[in-house]
Write a protein that binds this DNA or RNA. Structure first.
Lengths: 123, 123
DNA sequence: CGGTATCCGCGGTGATACTG
DNA sequence: CAGTATCACCGCGGATACCG
């Protein structure tokens, strides 16, 4: 039990945890999703300025993957100079609570580690 | 805002979502944690048989990382042949709800994708 | 402005063999 | 039984340059 490989589109996984991980995991996707959620619809350049450390290539790539997975909507305005806006879809909005849960656990983990460090310092 | 890098031990992150991802993310950790939770304390060989596709090296490595992060307890019985048991710590048990949330979202995502596929087939 | 195209290093992952 | 050790691959992510 639990050893069979399942498929969803092009993604393979044993457990749906992994499926979720493939969609919102990676170095940049959580941050992108987070900013799209907190700041709302944004242009490519705005996202870029918000995340100074991501390269243009990676931002484009990750946004396209999120679009392909149905989490992000990409609106192209046919004008010069180009204008492209990104926003969360309904599906994208539905991941926010999941991310919030992960956030909260991460925070409690931070505290647990800090307390363990204090314990060692006191000893 | 949100651009500062935070640290927790050897891990760097902007948001605690990423911290969580670094701890329970990757190809094998969710499965390992899941089996440890559902099946309880297990020996190395039992875990291996449960996950036929993981290599011995990866299983060892991932278990050690989980141990270093405080999610897994490693009990070595000094005997020949060796016996080593792995179990979830309290901290490890605390991630289970997070994984459950991710599981549930993954399942709803599966359904959304399946329905979208049905829609295209009908058209 | 919002992208592609190309090249490349590094680390995550795996196959295989050996060991206390 | 439960590991190390070693070698090799490959894909993620980054740097840089060019394009409509």
């Amino acid at each position: 039990m639990g050893c069979e490989i399942k498929r969803c589109g092009d993604k393979e996984y044993y457990c749906t945890v992994e499926l979720t991980l493939q969609i919102i995991g990676g170095k940049w996707k959580p941050i992108i999703l987070w900013y799209l959620h907190t700041n709302g619809t944004q242009r490519f350049g705005e996202l870029r300025r918000t995340m100074p450390n991501i390269t243009q290539k990676m931002l484009t790539q990750q946004l396209r993957e999120l679009e392909a997975d149905g989490l992000v909507h990409r609106e192209v305005y046919p004008q010069v100079p180009p204008k492209v806006e990104y926003s969360l879809t309904e599906l994208g909005t539905s991941v926010v609570p999941v991310m919030r849960t992960m956030c909260e656990w991460g925070q409690s983990y931070e505290k647990a580690v800090a307390q363990a460090a204090d314990g060692r310092d006191a000893a």
